[in-house]
Design a protein around this nucleic acid. Structure first.
Lengths: 194, 194
DNA sequence: ACCGGCGGTAGACAGCGTCTACGCCCGCCT
DNA sequence: AGGCGGGCGTAGACGCTGTCTACCGCCGGT
C-alpha cells in the first residue's frame, strides 16, 4: 500500500488549498484542481466521490492551518489568560481577513452534509482551546464557561464576517476591527484590567 | 409603456425569492428563475446584465423582508429599549434559521461587487434601527453607542451563523440559541434588569 | 508467465452563464 | 394612413462545469 510515493490525494488537496488561497472560492472547481495537480479531470473521483467531498478536505486543511497559527501565537503570548485570548482573537480575525476565500469555504454549511469527513470535528480542537481560555479568564459571577465561550466565539466570528462584508464601518463609523474586538472582549469578560 | 402588465423584472425577482426560500441557494440559477417566470433563458439579461445582478436584487428583497419583520415585531413590543432589543434580536435569529438560504445569499460578499444595486445600502436601515435602540438601552459608562451596536450586531450575526453551522451546540453544550442571545445581550448591555 | 485489479485516461452528457443574431409588435412621426 | 424604429423577448451557440462510464496500462502475486 505505502500510500504511494505520489500521494495524489494529498496533491489534490494541496492544489485546492493553493487555489482557494490565491484565487478565491469560485476558482476551486474540480477540473481546475485536477489540472493544477497534473491529472485528468476524472482522476479526483478515485479519492473524492464528489466535488463537495474534495472541498470538505480542503476546508479541513483550513481548520488545521488556523488551529496551528493560533497555537503558534499562543506559544509566544504570555501566561495571562486575558492577553492570550486577545492573541487568539487577533489571529482569528487576521486569518479571516487574509484568507477570506478559505474562511468562507470553512464555514459553508453545504459542506457539512458530506458526513464522512466530519468537518465539524476538525473545528472542535480550536474551539475547545477557546473554551479553556475563557474558563480561566472569566469572572466568577459570570455565565458558565461554555455559554460564555460560545457567545464570545460567535461575537468573534460575527466581527470577522461582517467586517469582511464591509457594512460595519459604514454603520458604526469604526475604522478598524481592533476596536470591535476590544469591545467584544470587554463585554464578555468584563472591562480590561488596564 | 405602463411598466407592462407583466412586469417581468419584478416577476424574475419574485421567482428568485421564492426559489431561494424554497430550495436554497444552489437552486437559484438564472435559467431556473427564467423557467419559473415562464420566459426564455435569455430574457433576464434585458434587466440584469449578469447573474449576480439578479441575485443582488433578490438579496435586496431579503433585507427588505427582514427589515419589515423587525419593524413589525417592534411595533408589537413595549416601549422598554431592552425588551425591544430582545425582540429585534429574536426576529433576526428566527429569520436566519427559517430562511437560511436567503440569509446566506444576503451576506454573500461576491454580491457586493455589483455596485449598481448597492446591496449594503439596503441593509443600513435595519442596522441604524439597531444602533438607535442600543443608544437608548446602553449604560452610561459603556462604550460609545456605534461601537457597542457594532459589537452587538456582530455577536448577533455570529450566533445566527454559527448556530446554523451547527458547531455551537457541540462545543458549548447549549441546546437553544436563546441562551446565547441572552448571554450576548447581558454582556454588551449589562445584566438584565430582572 | 499469466492474470486481476488498482489508478488514471478519455469521452459523453446535461446543465450552467454569457454572447449574438434574429424577429415580433407596438407607438411615433411624417 | 402608412411605414419605420426600437424595446422586449426568443433561440441557438460557445465554453465551462460536475458526474458517469468504458477503457487500458502497469505492477504484484501465484
Amino acid at each position: 500500500m505505502h500510500e504511494g510515493e505520489a500521494g495524489l490525494r494529498a496533491r489534490l488537496v494541496a492544489a485546492g488549498v493553493d487555489l482557494v488561497l490565491r484565487e478565491g472560492q469560485s476558482a476551486v472547481s474540480l477540473r481546475e484542481i485536477a489540472r493544477r495537480a497534473g491529472v485528468s479531470h476524472g482522476a479526483p473521483r478515485r479519492y473524492f466521490p464528489t466535488h463537495v467531498d474534495l472541498l470538505s478536505a480542503i476546508a479541513r486543511e483550513g481548520f488545521a492551518d488556523l488551529t496551528a497559527r493560533v497555537e503558534e501565537t499562543l506559544r509566544a503570548a504570555g501566561p495571562d489568560p486575558r492577553t492570550r485570548l486577545v492573541a487568539l482573537a487577533r489571529t482569528y480575525l487576521d486569518f479571516a481577513a487574509a484568507h477570506h476565500g478559505m474562511f468562507e469555504l470553512m464555514f459553508r454549511h453545504d459542506l457539512l452534509a458530506s458526513g464522512r469527513l466530519r468537518l465539524r470535528e476538525t473545528s472542535l480542537p480550536l474551539f475547545t482551546l477557546l473554551v479553556d481560555l475563557v474558563a480561566q479568564a472569566r469572572q466568577p459571577a459570570a455565565a458558565p464557561a461554555p455559554v460564555l465561550a460560545g457567545a464570545l466565539w460567535a461575537n468573534l466570528h460575527g466581527i470577522a464576517q461582517l467586517w469582511a462584508w464591509g457594512s460595519l464601518p459604514l454603520a458604526t463609523g469604526v475604522t478598524d476591527d481592533d476596536t470591535l474586538l476590544r469591545a467584544a472582549l470587554d463585554a464578555h469578560l468584563g472591562p480590561a484590567p488596564h
